[in-house]
Design a protein around this nucleic acid. Structure first.
Length: 376
DNA sequence: AATCTGCCTCAAGACGCA
DNA sequence: TTGTCTTGAGGCAGATT
DNA sequence: TGCGTCC
């Protein structure tokens, strides 16, 4: 995969493009996250948590905790859901499916990339109660994240996946989830291009030569040579004319043009038609959904919400100028929602579902909020 | 000596208590 | 009743230039 | 800080 290689190339050849900032620097920033990757992580990295109905709820717990963590830090998250994987990815998915063993039909492999439907709906419901917007991408989530960044609606993409850079995300941050060091690594695409002396088109060519997900790689052409040759000759076509085709055979079915197009003109949600709005989390709805409907441990949910609310009422260290009345924020008191002791659990049945108002894309003002540039 | 490939492994999330 | 074994990163050996 | 637990 080109991902590790690209990270290495950037660190070695364009170290200036990589910086570390404390999470606090991103207060009031809008950050796009690939929902599918996050959810996949929660389902694999966490032990399986089954509620009394036998449903796996790892992803809900993970998403709940992580999102609150972001909100507590003043970050405005936007979750972007994957759409249909591009056709060029089909061979890759098929290969994965084949490697996985039993899966045989194409439909199966197609679905493997997307989240199962109920899973996704649960996440959307949870995000709605958290007051966090989400966007459905027509194809690759990373591509739509990049488009949102380019449009200015979003400050950066948070992902471990380097794909966002060839898609044109101007800023990419990594290690957002690790809570320990609380330091986030930010990679600046313009800085990379400047340092490498490349255009975005050439950068995409570089990514292709490093061996991206969508097409194979040229035999015996590694990161060092690929970079040097591209800087020297400008395009892959020119590079090919300057290497020995015997020693560097092309991969089979190498769709160079298709892959380029995929990165340079990807199918994305139109940022102009998307408005993002954040609301305060709805504690009552969260308890109803997570604890009563999904049977997450109620006291855990309440405890976490309480912590969140305490953080809310604290003055912000990041903006000492702004005097926020200590007690005053318009948060309602938690006690109103939660029975003081957890014994007051309502009867089994969730009853009529909490009105599942689907907020498609919430309307409101984009979180274009200005705080000083964390990037410098 | 530098570079590339292949193969191996490991671990992965967030909480709270000690 | 309940899954799955993916994905990326780092290290090392050995081949190729 | 490390480690057991989360359903």
């Amino acid at each position: 995969m080109g991902i590790a290689r690209l990270a290495d190339v950037i660190k070695e050849e364009a170290a200036e493009a990589v910086n570390s900032f404390p999470l606090r620097q991103y207060r009031d920033r809008v950050i796009a996250l690939d929902a599918s990757i996050a959810i996949y992580q929660f389902r694999t990295a966490m032990p399986k948590l089954f509620n009394r109905n036998g449903e796996n709820i790892s992803h809900l717990q993970g998403l709940f905790y992580r999102t609150l963590h972001l909100l507590e830090n003043g970050i405005k998250p936007v979750f972007v859901f994957d759409g249909r994987p591009p056709d060029l990815k089909q061979p890759l998915l098929a290969r994965r499916a084949e490697a996985a063993g039993a899966r045989r039909d194409a439909a199966e492999s197609r679905r493997a990339e997307n989240l199962p439907r109920p899973l996704k709906q649960d996440c959307e419901t949870l995000l709605s109660y958290l007051g966090v917007p989400y966007v459905q991408a027509p194809a690759e989530a990373e591509a739509t994240c990049a488009a949102l960044v380019k449009s200015g609606k979003v400050w950066c993409t948070a992902t471990e996946d380097m794909d966002a850079l060839p898609f044109g995300s101007l800023r990419l941050i990594r290690h957002l989830s690790s809570k320990k060091n609380c330091e986030v690594e930010e990679i600046s695409l313009p800085d990379i291009l400047q340092k490498l002396g490349m255009t975005q088109e050439q950068f995409v060519d570089l990514y292709i030569l490093l061996g991206c997900d969508y097409c194979g790689k040229i035999w015996r052409l590694g990161p060092k040579k690929a970079l040097k040759l591209l800087q020297q000759h400008g395009t892959i076509e020119q590079v090919l004319q300057n290497i020995d085709p015997q020693k560097h055979p092309l991969p089979a079915n190498w769709d160079l043009e298709g892959t380029r197009r995929l990165f340079l003109q990807p199918e994305v949600a139109d940022p102009g038609r998307i408005t993002l709005e954040w609301r305060d989390p709805d504690p009552e709805g969260l308890v109803r959904f997570l604890a009563h409907e999904k049977h997450m441990n109620e006291s855990r949910v309440c405890q976490r919400l309480q912590r969140w609310q305490e953080a809310q009422s604290k003055p912000r260290e990041a903006q000492p100028k702004q005097r926020v009345p200590r007690e005053g924020r318009r948060q309602r008191k938690l006690g109103e929602f939660f029975p003081a002791s957890k014994r007051a659990r309502p009867p089994e049945v969730p009853g009529p579902r909490p009105s599942r108002k689907r907020q498609k894309l919430q309307v409101g003002t984009p979180g274009e909020a200005g705080s000083p540039d964390p990037g410098k």
